[in-house]
Amino acid sequence: MIIDTQLASLFTAASLIIIGIFAVGFLDNLIKKVIGLAFIGDGVNLFLVTLGYKPGGIVYIYLPSMTVEWFAQNASYPLPFALVLTSIVIGASTLAVMLGIIIVLYKKHGTISASKVLGDNGEE
């Protein structure tokens, strides 16, 4: 059975978020944790894009030959696409900062195991 594109995207988004939370919680490797975080962010972005999807809809560019009524009925919803671009940029910069910090920590500890690097090291 072929399911609806929008429904399939929503399922993918949900599974991405759940896999991401699992990875952050239960994998020990810091890089894998960061990949999990990227999954959560991507899942949410996919959800946002899916909101703007309209079956059979057109790109939201208003051409002189269109009537306003026809355009309002057929254009897909533009706002989520604008939002998701911003959100991707934010996600990318956060990932860059995190990976940068991981490089510093790797040089300091010689490992990227979360339980060793981020454990409770006795100091308060």
């Binding site: 959560i40 956060t94 995190m98």
Partner: peptide, 11 residues
């Protein structure tokens, strides 16, 4: 803080 934030902020 960043990892916890990257879980909470997308949510």
């Amino acid at each position: 803080y960043m990892i916890l934030g990257s879980v909470a902020a997308p949510l």
